[in-house]
Design a binder for these strands. Sequence first.
DNA 1: TCAAAAGTGTTGGCCCTACACCCATGC
DNA 2: GCATGGGTGTAGGGCCAACACTTTTGA
Lengths: 248, 248
Amino acid sequence: MELRDLIIAHSEKAYQQYLPHLSIDCVVFGFHDAKLKVLLVKMKSIVQWALPGGYLGKQEELEEAASRILKERTGADNIYLQQFRLFSKCGRSEGFFNGFPEGLWHRQRFVAAGFYALVNYTHVEPVVDAVSDACEWKDINGIPDLIMDHRTILDEALLNLRRELNYKPIGYNLLPEVFTMPELQKLYEIILGRQLNRGNFYRKMMAYDILDKLDETRKGGAHKAPNLYRFNCERYTKALQDGLKEGW
Amino acid sequence: MELRDLIIAHSEKAYQQYLPHLSIDCVVFGFHDAKLKVLLVKMKSIVQWALPGGYLGKQEELEEAASRILKERTGADNIYLQQFRLFSKCGRSEGFFNGFPEGLWHRQRFVAAGFYALVNYTHVEPVVDAVSDACEWKDINGIPDLIMDHRTILDEALLNLRRELNYKPIGYNLLPEVFTMPELQKLYEIILGRQLNRGNFYRKMMAYDILDKLDETRKGGAHKAPNLYRFNCERYTKALQDGLKEGW
DNA sequence: TCAAAAGTGTTGGCCCTACACCCATGC
DNA sequence: GCATGGGTGTAGGGCCAACACTTTTGA
């Protein structure tokens, strides 16, 4: 089916299923190959890329809607999700489907609830659906042109992520189950946008007492094989409750 | 007119004017008499109190809607407003107008955008409108029963305020133009929920270099008359941009 | 043998806390 | 004179950044 027909068909269903005027956009962060990635979608016959998004079912909880949207897009469950703000500017969405029939669902004014998600890169299988050409991880330093205000949403999400790092050990959701200390440090450096001192980082992480050191090492690279670690779920959760630190 | 008729009349206008399913609730903080206050509204023939709230005009910006709602309720302009999260649970609002006609505007599912506002207590003239009995400041330690999930919204707002205090000198928006150092300290102590050391507080505040000391004192009390201070607008704004401090 | 990983020691600085002092001042 | 406000001194602790040294280990 043509994109145009797909959209028009979707429009009718959407009117029945979803609350009008409210959309959900997700900034999905992943970490791979020592780089921070964001999951983006390219719709058919549209040049720019977009954040994965969707709508809120009439009887659906907001967080469940976001989970559903990500499940469809990544195949992954139990994704760490954080609502961070609304994007509501007049005109941010209305013009995007110009040329399509009036009264099309997509041509409403939409107020978008911005979520950011932290996922284990290896658990994600990007899904290309009927209306999209591509669904891919993009490096945070190589984000292509995005539709509407999605670039703003992405930037705001990154800001929030950075702030959250101050009092939550975020790595838990972004890294694979086991990882090395240099990998963890690299992740922090990328999110914060600056270098950290190795020795001090090591000590600080160990002081949180939320890592279990495994007996194995990561063989295969040149040089010494680094130790493997795993987050200790219990102590991690407990640390989060206490809140790692805060001023005043 | 009876409340019932007023609501039904309002319902028709609302369908024309506002985006459906989206509401705005504001937690308005004020400081008076060494106490933190929240502005609450009591609707006619409803026992519980409510946060001031309203809806988003079809062509209106979200922040402007919040400003308009507060302007109507307080008479004050230029109120410091901060969006902090959505409250979207299914059933949070639908049941509230049971007994009213089906299809009433107010009986929709509403997703509420939570704002908190910081206002100068003395600039506010609480407004009782047609559907309300009362509009009053309530002490943060003496909040009456609230409708729906408004208590949760209030608590969340307070949490956000406390967090923001860590990197913004919030007093600017809550205090009158001139104030004394003990008043400022008291405000901080209430928001943080704990005592602070006087000498250290004094030094820290002065170190921010955002206060102008006036030549006057506050006469009239027993004991020594305290000095008066005023926020230095320029340096205050500049300090906010730099961000007072943050971890990592 | 080389380069990376791991672990630890040390230093100095900064900031914060707690306490304490002294002076000023209004009644 | 007494209680409060204003301003400053200081000792101690915690934390952190920077640097450095050592040992381990895989190819």
